[in-house]
Computed example of a mutant assay.
Amino acid sequence: MKLKSKILITLNSIKRNYYNWRYWNNVYKNMMKYTQSLASKDKSYMLLYKNKPGIALSFDDSFRINDWYKYGNKIFGYYDVKVTFNINAIHHFKGKREHTQKEIDMLLELQSMGHEIGHHGFKHKKATDYSNDFGLDSWIEDEIVTLIDWMDQQSHSKTLEKFKKPVSFAFPHFLFDSKHVSELVPKYFKIVRGHLYKENLISFNHSGFTPSICLDGYYSYNLHYIKKIMRLVKKSGKNLIFTCHSILPKEFDWDVYGWGKEAKKSGTWRITPQMIQTIINEAREIGLEFYTTSEIAGIATFIDHNFEKCIRELISNPSLKWIPLSELSPIVELDLSNQGISNLDGIQYCVNLEKLHLGGNNITDFRLLKKLPKLKKINFGNDLKEKISNINY
């Protein structure tokens, strides 16, 4: 390689590193500016579910489902590091086709591991551009309502489980304005995610627009500043959303997918499994929790509609669009006998539950009962006693 080329490569590397440092330094300094008055002893805004500030990892664009499924499952575990996967109904590059049944199954299996499936627009259209061309009402109908309806029509090919009704929305390309936010909240969603804004931190039970910090694409990540920002989150007592896209090893060749030149730029929007693991390790070391976006919004969700119906009968206002997490905390005894329940997702929010009756249901997975620290007595009924060998008390 000629000396001139080597010098040019070195200069470009120095330039990239400088811009990376300058961007993340500005993000951190801006957060410091707005958060100096946040470190209060008053923790009344804390979530009754965990009472710990935390991180929400938010992944966009479900044409990346193979990456999410292959690498995410290994890192996140079962109801451990819970994240939000924001989906569309179409593949961005394979002829704009809708998701195959195999892809839908993978998305629903991620949901069954404790993750949130958020709304990211039916065809991933830019909110402001589409609204300028066709009107805001058309964007709502074509991108929002259509995907909600599409999600409601899908089910897993084997378990028959369905998508939960989405609580959160992520604006494609981070493009939006106040009109779009007011049209979406609270009619369609409890919380809608964009990009940087002021301190970038979110209180529990938040409603409306929420900012995030992107870790990939041309924003890239800077581990030094990410760690400093996470410590700032801990100090503030609030929460932060990190936005990402694909989960892929650094050495993975994007061209292997064969999606053509059109997809080349999308291949730069990726974060490595190693970096995600580093963030997880850092969060645990300093005492941060991991939440889904809907949990930060203070909402409890359920896979099983029969289970949700039982919970609604116990809360102060059963007709609420979404069930507040705060309504589940006071529950100390729960009788779910003979209710046709097959999935206990959502019971992890009943953190003060002491007695539970489960007989007469078709439940085969009891692992979530381990998430209930105060549970003392369980009545499985004769029909379930043979199915609980994986539970130890």
Rank of each mutant, 00 (worst) to 15 (best):
S13Y: 12
K15D: 06
Y19I: 00
N20C: 08
N26H: 10
S37N: 13
L38R: 10
A39T: 11
S40C: 11
S40D: 13
S44R: 12
N51R: 12
S58E: 03
S62C: 11
F63A: 00
N73I: 13
Y78E: 15
Y79M: 07
N86L: 11
N88W: 00
A89L: 05
H91A: 03
H91Y: 02
F93H: 14
E98V: 11
I104T: 07
L110P: 08
Q111L: 08
G114I: 11
H115F: 04
K125G: 10
D129H: 10
N132K: 15
D137G: 11
I140Q: 07
S157H: 09
T159A: 04
T159F: 01
K162N: 08
A170V: 15
S178W: 06
V181A: 04
K187T: 15
H195V: 00
E199D: 15
N200H: 04
S207R: 11
G208H: 08
N222I: 00
Y225M: 04
R231W: 05
L232K: 12
K235M: 11
L240H: 03
T243H: 07
H245F: 05
S246H: 14
W259K: 14
E262T: 13
M275F: 15
Q277E: 15
I279E: 02
E282D: 09
E289H: 15
T293F: 00
E295V: 11
E295L: 09
I296E: 04
S316M: 04
S319C: 03
K321H: 09
P324H: 02
L325E: 06
L336T: 11
S337Y: 05
N338D: 15
Q348P: 03
C350H: 06
C350M: 13
V351Q: 13
V351R: 15
E354V: 13
N361L: 10
K371Y: 02
K377T: 13
K377A: 09
